[in-house]
Design a protein around this nucleic acid. Structure first.
Lengths: 137, 137
DNA sequence: GTAATTGCAAAAGATTTGCCCCATT
DNA sequence: AATGGGGCAAATCTTTTGCAATTAC
């Protein structure tokens, strides 16, 4: 008795939402997914988007990210382990590699039971917003 | 002309809030800070707590953390670099060491301009909620 | 046919803000 | 005295939820 989940249906809405997230590398907000989805499904509602994002997250097909300086979540269709960089200027979020060694970070901490997820976020300004070596001439 | 910040005053409220965060290792929510603060300042309002948390964050005296599975922010009076572990069962948040090597993670990514903050969160269950080696007898 | 899912709108939860008075400098 | 800050309540923003109708299986 470990099949607590109820069966899910393949609705057009859910398919479109998942497709949007798989195509995009922009880590869109729910609102952004909603606007994108309206292009193919003019009647889809924001509530449906949120509900599906939650279902897809539960199925491990989508990941939710909470950017450090922002009030709204971003969603990521790439569930392979990776880190993020968030530009506080233009609010762009890009993928970064995730050092495999990070798990060791926890190995000796006795208060930690088991780790199910890891979230590494670097925050700052991207190269376009604040070039590391400003051109002086 | 680089002193854009306005001068801040030492109010009893702000002092109490900062003190609470410095004393605590619980990474309390704004609401929790509010309840704690009421013990010494029975009339303090939640709005004042939020306003001061934002001021203190701006001054670099307090850090805001957005736990992966929770809707409310936590606040941390320890601004030395460190990571966090968040137990999704009991919602406890504990400090972890932050590997100094992490900065290298970004060194070769050309889209990254400058990094101002780093946020590493491990999510799972703590030892008390799900002992790593369950006692069978 | 049954149950999951939708759209809509209302509700909830967290945080911010306007306003007027008070307190710090 | 000048003005930053406080208290209160209303407003805002993001996300969730109840409900009746619809749709996938």
């Amino acid at each position: 008795m470990e099949d607590t989940e109820k069966k899910s249906r393949n609705t057009r809405q859910r398919g479109v939402i998942l497709e949007i997230l798989k195509e995009s590398c922009a880590h869109p907000t729910a609102e952004a997914v909603y606007h994108q989805a309206r292009k193919s499904l003019p009647n889809i509602s924001l509530g449906t988007v949120y509900r599906n994002l939650n279902v897809l997250r539960g199925q491990g097909l989508v990941r939710e990210i909470r950017p450090a300086g922002s009030s709204s979540s971003r969603f990521d269709g790439n569930c392979l382990p990776h880190a993020h960089f968030y530009c506080t200027e233009c609010r762009t979020m890009i993928d970064l590699p995730l050092p495999a060694s990070l798990q060791e970070n926890v190995r000796d901490v006795e208060a930690v039971g088991s780790v199910s997820a890891m979230d590494l976020q670097m925050v700052g300004t991207c190269a376009r917003c604040a070039p590391p070596v400003p051109q002086l001439l």
